[in-house]
Amino acid sequence: MSDLRSLYQEIILDHNKNPRNFGVLDDANRVIEGYNPLCGDRYTIYLKLEDDVIQEIKFSGVGCAISKASASVMTTVLKGKTVPEAEAWFEKFHALVTHPSGEDADGASLGKLAAFAGVSEFPARVKCATLAWHSLKGALRSSATSVSTE
Protein backbone atom coordinates (compact mmCIF):
# COMPACT_ATOMS: atom_id res chain seq x y z
CA MET A 1 0.00 0.00 0.00
CA SER A 2 2.83 2.43 0.75
CA ASP A 3 4.25 1.99 -2.76
CA LEU A 4 0.82 2.64 -4.20
CA ARG A 5 0.30 5.74 -2.11
CA SER A 6 3.62 7.09 -3.32
CA LEU A 7 2.28 6.76 -6.87
CA TYR A 8 -1.34 7.75 -6.32
CA GLN A 9 -0.79 10.77 -4.10
CA GLU A 10 -3.78 12.92 -3.15
CA ILE A 11 -2.66 15.69 -5.47
CA ILE A 12 -2.58 13.25 -8.40
CA LEU A 13 -6.00 11.81 -7.60
CA ASP A 14 -7.35 15.34 -7.27
CA HIS A 15 -5.95 16.54 -10.62
CA ASN A 16 -7.22 13.34 -12.27
CA LYS A 17 -10.72 13.93 -10.97
CA ASN A 18 -10.73 17.68 -11.48
CA PRO A 19 -8.21 18.46 -14.19
CA ARG A 20 -7.21 22.14 -14.37
CA ASN A 21 -7.10 24.05 -17.66
CA PHE A 22 -9.03 21.22 -19.28
CA GLY A 23 -10.66 21.92 -22.62
CA VAL A 24 -10.03 23.50 -25.99
CA LEU A 25 -8.17 26.81 -26.21
CA ASP A 26 -9.85 28.60 -29.09
CA ASP A 27 -7.15 31.19 -29.74
CA ALA A 28 -4.21 28.82 -29.42
CA ASN A 29 -1.36 29.40 -31.86
CA ARG A 30 0.32 26.07 -31.14
CA VAL A 31 -1.65 22.80 -31.02
CA ILE A 32 -0.07 19.39 -30.69
CA GLU A 33 -1.37 15.88 -30.09
CA GLY A 34 0.42 13.35 -27.91
CA TYR A 35 -0.43 9.67 -28.26
CA ASN A 36 0.71 6.49 -26.57
CA PRO A 37 -0.33 3.64 -28.89
CA LEU A 38 0.43 1.03 -26.23
CA CYS A 39 -2.35 2.13 -23.90
CA GLY A 40 -4.36 4.51 -26.04
CA ASP A 41 -3.70 7.64 -23.97
CA ARG A 42 -4.28 10.65 -26.18
CA TYR A 43 -4.03 14.35 -25.33
CA THR A 44 -4.03 17.60 -27.22
CA ILE A 45 -2.00 20.47 -25.79
CA TYR A 46 -3.04 24.02 -26.72
CA LEU A 47 -0.62 26.93 -26.31
CA LYS A 48 -0.94 30.63 -26.79
CA LEU A 49 2.64 31.77 -27.20
CA GLU A 50 3.38 35.49 -27.33
CA ASP A 51 6.87 36.95 -27.31
CA ASP A 52 8.31 33.64 -26.12
CA VAL A 53 5.93 33.54 -23.15
CA ILE A 54 3.21 30.92 -22.55
CA GLN A 55 0.25 33.26 -22.09
CA GLU A 56 -2.34 30.47 -22.08
CA ILE A 57 -2.11 26.68 -21.91
CA LYS A 58 -4.92 24.10 -21.92
CA PHE A 59 -5.28 20.42 -22.69
CA SER A 60 -7.96 17.94 -23.68
CA GLY A 61 -8.11 14.21 -24.20
CA VAL A 62 -8.29 10.88 -22.38
CA GLY A 63 -5.88 8.72 -20.47
CA CYS A 64 -4.96 7.23 -17.12
CA ALA A 65 -4.79 9.09 -13.81
CA ILE A 66 -1.04 9.55 -14.00
CA SER A 67 -1.05 10.99 -17.53
CA LYS A 68 -4.06 13.21 -16.90
CA ALA A 69 -2.81 14.56 -13.57
CA SER A 70 0.61 15.13 -15.09
CA ALA A 71 -0.90 17.15 -17.94
CA SER A 72 -3.07 19.10 -15.52
CA VAL A 73 -0.25 19.96 -13.11
CA MET A 74 1.96 20.85 -16.07
CA THR A 75 -0.51 23.46 -17.28
CA THR A 76 -0.67 25.07 -13.84
CA VAL A 77 3.12 25.18 -13.57
CA LEU A 78 3.83 26.54 -17.04
CA LYS A 79 1.26 29.28 -17.42
CA GLY A 80 3.16 32.57 -17.70
CA LYS A 81 6.56 30.92 -18.14
CA THR A 82 8.99 31.70 -20.97
CA VAL A 83 9.97 29.02 -23.47
CA PRO A 84 13.45 28.52 -21.93
CA GLU A 85 11.85 28.27 -18.48
CA ALA A 86 9.35 25.69 -19.76
CA GLU A 87 12.17 23.66 -21.30
CA ALA A 88 14.04 23.76 -18.00
CA TRP A 89 10.89 22.47 -16.23
CA PHE A 90 10.69 19.65 -18.75
CA GLU A 91 14.25 18.58 -17.88
CA LYS A 92 13.54 18.75 -14.16
CA PHE A 93 10.36 16.73 -14.46
CA HIS A 94 11.95 14.18 -16.73
CA ALA A 95 14.81 13.67 -14.27
CA LEU A 96 12.35 13.34 -11.41
CA VAL A 97 10.32 10.52 -12.92
CA THR A 98 13.20 8.62 -14.48
CA HIS A 99 15.63 8.66 -11.55
CA PRO A 100 15.37 6.41 -8.52
CA SER A 101 13.26 7.99 -5.83
CA GLY A 102 15.11 10.50 -3.70
CA GLU A 103 17.70 11.56 -6.25
CA ASP A 104 17.15 15.01 -7.66
CA ALA A 105 13.82 15.15 -5.85
CA ASP A 106 14.26 18.58 -4.41
CA GLY A 107 10.77 19.08 -3.05
CA ALA A 108 11.10 22.81 -2.52
CA SER A 109 12.12 23.69 -6.08
CA LEU A 110 9.73 21.20 -7.70
CA GLY A 111 6.58 22.38 -5.96
CA LYS A 112 3.52 20.38 -7.01
CA LEU A 113 5.58 18.32 -9.43
CA ALA A 114 7.22 16.58 -6.46
CA ALA A 115 4.02 14.52 -6.23
CA PHE A 116 5.26 12.57 -9.26
CA ALA A 117 8.46 11.36 -7.56
CA GLY A 118 6.83 7.96 -6.93
CA VAL A 119 6.50 7.32 -10.67
CA SER A 120 10.19 6.37 -10.87
CA GLU A 121 9.34 3.26 -8.81
CA PHE A 122 6.92 2.18 -11.58
CA PRO A 123 8.95 2.02 -14.81
CA ALA A 124 5.89 0.98 -16.84
CA ARG A 125 4.22 4.28 -15.89
CA VAL A 126 7.02 6.70 -16.81
CA LYS A 127 5.55 7.12 -20.29
CA CYS A 128 2.19 8.03 -18.76
CA ALA A 129 3.76 10.76 -16.66
CA THR A 130 5.82 12.22 -19.49
CA LEU A 131 3.29 12.05 -22.38
CA ALA A 132 1.96 15.59 -21.95
CA TRP A 133 5.43 16.94 -21.30
CA HIS A 134 6.84 15.41 -24.48
CA SER A 135 3.90 16.84 -26.38
CA LEU A 136 4.59 20.25 -24.88
CA LYS A 137 8.21 20.05 -25.93
CA GLY A 138 7.05 19.31 -29.46
CA ALA A 139 4.65 22.25 -29.37
CA LEU A 140 7.39 24.62 -28.20
CA ARG A 141 9.47 23.56 -31.18
CA SER A 142 6.35 24.19 -33.25
CA SER A 143 7.11 22.19 -36.37
CA ALA A 144 5.51 18.95 -35.22
CA THR A 145 1.75 18.44 -34.89
CA SER A 146 1.80 15.09 -33.14
CA VAL A 147 4.07 13.26 -30.76
CA SER A 148 4.04 9.54 -30.14
CA THR A 149 5.71 7.74 -27.29
CA GLU A 150 6.63 4.86 -29.58
Partner: peptide
Protein backbone atom coordinates in the same frame (compact mmCIF):
# COMPACT_ATOMS: atom_id res chain seq x y z
CA UNK B 1 -16.21 4.24 -13.71
CA UNK B 2 -13.71 7.07 -13.40
CA UNK B 3 -10.67 4.79 -13.30
CA UNK B 4 -8.53 4.20 -16.35
CA UNK B 5 -7.65 0.53 -17.03
CA UNK B 6 -3.96 1.38 -16.84
CA UNK B 7 -4.41 2.46 -13.22
CA UNK B 8 -6.47 -0.66 -12.55
CA UNK B 9 -3.59 -2.80 -13.81
CA UNK B 10 -0.98 -1.02 -11.69
CA UNK B 11 -3.02 -1.30 -8.49
CA UNK B 12 -3.93 -4.96 -9.10
CA UNK B 13 -0.24 -5.67 -9.66
CA UNK B 14 0.45 -4.40 -6.14
CA UNK B 15 -1.80 -7.23 -4.99
CA UNK B 16 0.12 -9.74 -7.09
CA UNK B 17 -2.63 -9.92 -9.72
CA UNK B 18 -1.66 -9.99 -13.41
CA UNK B 19 -4.29 -8.77 -15.88
CA UNK B 20 -3.89 -7.12 -19.26
CA UNK B 21 -4.89 -3.50 -19.64
CA UNK B 22 -5.15 -1.48 -22.81
CA UNK B 23 -6.64 -1.98 -26.24
CA UNK B 24 -5.63 -5.63 -26.63
CA UNK B 25 -4.51 -5.01 -30.23
CA UNK B 26 -8.17 -4.48 -31.07
CA UNK B 27 -8.51 -0.73 -31.46
Amino acid sequence: DGIHPHDIGTILNEDGIAVRTGQHCAQ
